[in-house]
Design a protein around this nucleic acid. Sequence first.
DNA 1: GGTGTTTTCGAAAACGTTTTCGATTCTTAA
DNA 2: TTAAGAATCGAAAACGTTTTCGAAAACACC
Lengths: 341, 341
Amino acid sequence: MNNTKLIDIASALGISVTTVSKALKGYTDISKSTRAKVIEMAETMNYMPNSVAVNLRTNETKTIGVIIPATVHHFFSSVLNGILEEAEKRGYLVIILQSNEKYELEKKQLALLIQKRVDGVLMSLSNETDDFSHINDAIKKNTPVVLFDKIAKRVDCSKVIINDAKAAYDAVTYLINKGYKKIAHFRGSYVPQNSIDRFLGYKRALEAHGIEYDSKLVYVCDNNTDFEDGYENAQKIMTEHPDIDAIFAITDLVAIGIIKYFNEAGIKTPQQVAVFGFSNWFMSTVISPKLTTIDQPGFEMGHTAASILIDEIAEIKEHRAVTHQIVELPTRIIERESTVK
Amino acid sequence: MNNTKLIDIASALGISVTTVSKALKGYTDISKSTRAKVIEMAETMNYMPNSVAVNLRTNETKTIGVIIPATVHHFFSSVLNGILEEAEKRGYLVIILQSNEKYELEKKQLALLIQKRVDGVLMSLSNETDDFSHINDAIKKNTPVVLFDKIAKRVDCSKVIINDAKAAYDAVTYLINKGYKKIAHFRGSYVPQNSIDRFLGYKRALEAHGIEYDSKLVYVCDNNTDFEDGYENAQKIMTEHPDIDAIFAITDLVAIGIIKYFNEAGIKTPQQVAVFGFSNWFMSTVISPKLTTIDQPGFEMGHTAASILIDEIAEIKEHRAVTHQIVELPTRIIERESTVK
DNA sequence: GGTGTTTTCGAAAACGTTTTCGATTCTTAA
DNA sequence: TTAAGAATCGAAAACGTTTTCGAAAACACC
């Protein structure tokens, strides 16, 4: 009920709030004796500074905002954990918002965050957004933004990403080197950059190794909440192109749908058809056969994105020049059972 | 760079900040004409109120804090989604913190939140905490707290939970009715209430159906980050008690470890040993055979916890009496392959 | 005892709002 | 024309800090 404030401890001691404040903050123009008295009194009265008042006065909130496009699951929960750990370590609180892949909501939420005076924001773009003025506005208002995972190349800020095209290229190259010849691709929807880049990596890898690209071998899986899409398209492709010997899936989720179908239909993985996933979600080790996949370092992504953001906040505060950096986190192939005969 | 404030639009219009503030907030003692002018000017100058100043003046932040004990995964990510959705709908922001199952950290984080002047906090207790004075302190300072999932019966606040003992009782009763006779239990560690309650439910169900409880059939799995624990204990129990015909696992994770081992060891599930999980995590449908489990409604739990908290915030603000409620969310058995022959 | 220096403290402004309460102007009716 | 009432506005205090700047007190030195 009774939150003690500076003036309470000041009047208890018969001194001014100024002195109390300074004593608590270690100013050198307060004598050791009164400082000691103040600290003790603050202790016994259980004083805790009112952050809101401090924020108003100092013009910083020690809070960062995070906007993610999708529900907190799988990949984004790893990212979030990385963000939370780094924020905790650096003394920041984090406010989290979900845009549900809607541009309008994302825009509104960003405005809300800067209205809340967060010191900076971390965001991963919704599939819908192709206008970036809201982000540029935030940056112009001196609220640093760092983009992660789903980014826009055209906005001038720091970014932390993986190289989706390269990772996909590596995956398909791996399959080719393993001797697979007719490799299909289950891609994501046409909009998000990740989906496009992974598709491009697939295509380039084929061409670079003398395999002709065949658009008929590309199936679209745009449902990313369950594995039905992978299941159904696996069924479809095995009637339309029964002679394929590998599938590179955009996501572990669709890969699992594929394996599920194969298991039920008696199609041997990897003997008849190999399956390669993407992201290294937890469940890729629970499916049988265990899934070969690309490790997408979500935790580290959150970690470094938060770190860069907090660095930029400090730079802005001290009026130093802020240097935007684009860090590309390494991915690697996790070879498991679904591709080794 | 230039955030416009009340005084900017006041001087642009040659009126006082008081009038501007009132016009924007719909006070009735401002003429229609000046109100219109103010609103238009606010629009063109892109005015957004400084939340920090508003918070200081109004003594509310429209923000709630959430403390969860473990990493944002599986169950807690569902809870978090429920919280986020409800908060968004009711106009609240959410700050999220992880206590990593540490009492000291939990205590510090709660203090931080109330120092930040959040309007209320949602928390799930760490395994370590057996002293609840920090929570009582928060409540005494008029910051409502609602506990979810991992709660303490002794603190006087609202709670939203499932009935772990009953759910476990139902699960084991189901197994008994299916004809299983020698049912083992892979329990969690000894501290958290959930673990205790599920164990108790297991024991009572046996006794209620005339099966003698045998402590040798209870194994402890206290690692909840991977399924190794379930795997190893499955291996162990099959050498020590090869004649069991069912295992009730505290968690889908350990259930999956069990099934993994059984699949590798050629032990048929459920023909030789049935497996029953708990929580209905996503991966319980990717394992083969699909796992029979208890549906633990995480999303709904987050939803109703947030809803209750926000109601209590309103009650406190309007000096109405706050009535604590304890809501017990229904669980249900999801019957899948791992228990039906 | 006077001068200069160091130590120690506090008044006051500021951060950007909200809200109370009084003042001024405008209407209206007698 | 005047008084009462309604309509419209603004000064100022308040929320709880931080920080500047000046003042007072204490000390040192001759």
